[in-house]
Design a protein around this nucleic acid. Structure first.
Lengths: 147, 147
DNA sequence: TTTTTTTAAATTGTATGCAATTTATTATCA
DNA sequence: TGATAATAAATTGCATACAATTTAAAAAAA
């Protein structure tokens, strides 16, 4: 195994570590979120909207780093679940304004226990989790200047 | 904004940091890998096979943390591209043995420059990259005991 | 040996992601 | 003002991910 081979080894790739770890974390959420009848992507979309709603698809996409190709069907699903509303902006009909419904706001109360459940499952000291999260956010900001 | 709200803020979620960063890194690969006519998942699959081939779908899946539902169509694609072969194990017909073809081995030479190209695009000190990669691998090993 | 269980891939169905294009609307320019 | 450009969503097409089921083959048990 020479240097050239080391270069392409899976375990040496930053990308694979991220890719694998991200999916493993998402898997931990699945059983917990199924109690809220949400997928992982629906969950982080609701997180963004609980923080700030009355936003456009574009705003939301900038926040989640997702485009309309992903968001449009996802938001239609959340609308069908009566968690959000999708209305055209009267002042500019190009914009679609997304708002959390009363039912959607109630779900937030149920979601409050999700982070604790996750944390318990991961069984990793909170300081360690926060440290790595901060480092990843720092890396992300270098990759995505607008974040 | 009280403590309860902090709990569900997007920026406080480890999962979102991973999810967003993983996708941003994958995006960096896209233009580079398009020169090899590979998608990102096809690329990491080839990385695993260049390291060790003659393995079953199950072996490969354990390595990449992917199941046959994802791998079967992906491997059929790579076979159609003549980068790999898919043959039943004569000793146990349940097993499908994956091997890299001559053409697939040639592609490895072209792939050699991918990590350097990526590194240049990311423009982040190698020590920093290695440090965060090691921390993520450590986290992954705690989440996925068999890795 | 026949039946049952286990195992490995493949298949099916649902939900993303994302590039590229299209549609509808608004802004800008000649 | 009328034509052109720009913008926001939606749509289309392709490639994952993954749970759940099915199929085929091998191993284990009756």
């Amino acid at each position: 195994m020479n240097d050239k081979d080391e270069l392409l080894k899976l375990e040496n790739q930053l990308c694979f570590a991220f890719y694998a770890c991200s999916r493993e974390i998402t898997k931990l959420y699945r059983p917990i979120l199924s109690e809220l009848d949400l997928t992982y992507t629906q969950y982080i979309t609701m997180l963004a909207l609980w923080e700030k709603d009355g936003v456009t698809v574009k705003d939301l996409g900038a926040r989640l780093l997702l485009d309309s190709g992903t968001l449009t069907p996802l938001l239609k699903k959340l609308e069908a679940m009566q968690l959000i509303t999708r209305d055209r902006d009267k002042a500019d009909e190009r914009n679609l304004v997304i708002r959390v419904t009363e039912h959607g706001a109630q779900l937030k109360e149920k979601a409050m226990c999700v982070p604790a459940q996750l944390s318990q499952q991961m069984n990793i000291p909170i300081e360690e989790v926060n440290s790595i999260r901060d480092q990843i956010q720092d890396l992300l900001s270098k990759l995505e200047p607008t974040v």
